[in-house]
Amino acid sequence: MSDLSEVADVLARGDEARAVVRVLDRHGFGTVEPGQLLVAGADGTLGGVLLRGALDDRAAALVRDARRAPSVIEAHVAEDDAVAAGLACAGGATLLGHPLDAAPARALAQAFAAGVPAALVTRADGSASLAITGGDLDDVEGSLGFATVDAEAASRVRHLLRRGATVTERVTLEAGADVLVDLWVPVPTMVIVGPGAIADALIAQAALLGWVAGRADTVAEADAAVAAFTDADVLVLLDHDPAFDAVLRTGLEGRGFLGALGSRRTQAARRERLLAAGVTEERLARIHGPVGLDLGARTPAETAVSIVGEVLAVRSGRDPSALGVAAGPIGA
């Protein structure tokens, strides 16, 4: 998911309806990142971008008018202008501008800020919207007009969540509603503390998954990174230096997955230090240590797989077991 902090700031402001412009349909432009939107607050403040700014003038005018009523416009970008904006080629887009009530706007803002999945589903004519947020997309704000349509829309975005990627899709629901779905799935940032082959393998594994990964070599660097964590982010502490206990204490005050490698003896010593520093047993339970699933991993690459496997299991609320003996539906 692209950085949506600016969008979240605008969506969070005030109690009046905001306005949103999104790409309803398009042709050309080459590969375009999904989940694009431009928002306007009641005070006219803008946030976000569409098509790398190639349609800024049209989109900005549309989003300001959309606070009063929904509308749809057709826009075209010539080859030179498209390439100058960083798009692959010329193209055309159908832009939908529509009001967004304060409650669903705030729900989206909170989800973007927290780094949890969020979806905005809107009738294709812009007449009604609902926001669906949370780790399992359980929280719904707004309505498309009928409970049956809302339920089908929620089911649709929860199904899309299984892909694990941000998506923009225009669909006709079985209830007959033509809707635009934008689903934003946060991309985890993995902060790895400590050098070595396992750190290298974790960076490679993160790249394979499309995650952002980086190293923090000092307590100050790691502490600053963990303090900014969202729910999607991951700390893997490989360094056994007691100085890095401070990073875990910071992490326990915030969000994200906290994992620490080390032997049982190392884990026990770390635990005693944290308890002595005032960390409660309840909060200590948030630290996954030794981090990783029991896969019989021996090499750094296998260890990285086991660590990432535990992160995925925790994020999905699963108790890992072999699919062949699991009772639940596969892929659900």
Rank of each mutant, 00 (worst) to 15 (best):
L237W: 11
D294E: 13
R318G: 11
G142V: 09
G115L: 06
R170K: 10
V181R: 00
F112G: 01
R13A: 15
A78F: 08
G254C: 10
I73A: 06
T31Y: 09
L96E: 01
A268P: 05
Q110H: 12
V83A: 05
V39T: 00
D245G: 15
L252F: 02
D56K: 05
G44L: 01
A75E: 12
L87K: 02
A165L: 13
H98Y: 14
T280P: 08
T230E: 12
L209S: 11
A19C: 09
L24M: 05
H27E: 06
T230M: 09
P329F: 03
L183A: 07
V171Y: 09
T94N: 04
P104N: 03
A207V: 04
A90C: 09
L261G: 02
A107K: 00
R156G: 01
T280V: 09
E310D: 02
R52S: 08
T94R: 15
P290G: 12
R58V: 14
G296D: 01
G14W: 04
V325N: 01
V7S: 06
L87R: 00
L4D: 11
A131E: 02
R52W: 00
A225S: 10
T168V: 05
V279F: 05
E310C: 00
S129C: 13
D217M: 03
L258G: 12
D56S: 13
S127I: 08
F146P: 01
V314K: 02
H98E: 03
L293F: 01
F146I: 03
R215M: 08
E253Q: 13
G324D: 14
D241F: 02
A199G: 15
A114W: 12
D223A: 11
D81I: 03
V72G: 03
R170W: 07
G142S: 12
L108Y: 02
D182F: 08
S5K: 09
A12M: 07
R265M: 03
A313M: 10
G134M: 05
L4G: 04
V140G: 10
T299W: 13
V179F: 04
A177F: 06
G41S: 03
H159N: 12
L275F: 11
L144E: 08
A204H: 04
V10I: 10
D178G: 08
V39D: 02
G210T: 07
T189L: 15
I73G: 05
D138H: 12
I287T: 12
A90T: 03
L237H: 12
Q36A: 03
L137F: 02
D57G: 00
C89I: 00
A128T: 14
G14D: 08
G259K: 06
P188C: 10
G324L: 10
T148D: 15
D43L: 06
L295H: 08
V32R: 07
V187N: 11
R67Y: 09
